[in-house]
Amino acid sequence: MTVFTVNAQKKIIQHTDTIKSHFYNGFTIQGDLASAIVPVITKGTYSYEAAIQIDIKHKYYPIVEIGFAGADKTTINNIGFITNAPFGRIGVDFNILKKKKDSKPTNNLFLLGARLGMSNFNYKITNATIINDYWGGSETIFTDMNTTNKVWWEIIGGVRVEVIKNVYMGWTIRNKNLLSQDVAGAISPWYIPGFGINTSTNWGFNYTLGYHF
């Protein structure tokens, strides 16, 4: 009887595929899935947007966001507001996820960043009625198309997770702040494309799906 002894040979596999820190590491094109729930959260409005984001040194992520948003709103007093316009934002995100020395290389990101947003748009207010209660009669105000330009800044926080190779999903929360206020008493827009309802501070949310090239 012959006995064979097999000695298992241990193989030591070393990870050599660590993420290289090139200056330029491609770009991601991403769309906003949260657009679908915008009309549910703020009735009478819609907003669609997409972005292109560049990866520099896996640390800095300059971004350009463009979108199209609008509102067609009638209040309980029958006053109407209409706008439809494009908007844009530029900014940069910083990946603040620290990679542990012995951890597996990852493409997941935890981002903090800032944006400067702008929209130049036309809007119309209809059917604002002033009742001359004591003297009798009334006056209904229909404005022509008003053109305005709104600029705001944002602080954002978000997460990107690589769900399958080169496909990223994640969310972004935005705190938006208008740079200029409306003149008291003057006609002003109810909704600003890309910013939301016209208040000095606003919140926004995106749920993004992106592909990295």
Binding site: T129, I130, I141, G185
Partner: peptide, 15 residues
């Protein structure tokens, strides 16, 4: 008389 716009919810008033 002046038209003074308050908001979409409130409309205009005369001042």
């Amino acid at each position: 008389n002046y038209n003074t716009y308050l908001s979409l919810e409130c409309g205009c008033i005369k001042t």
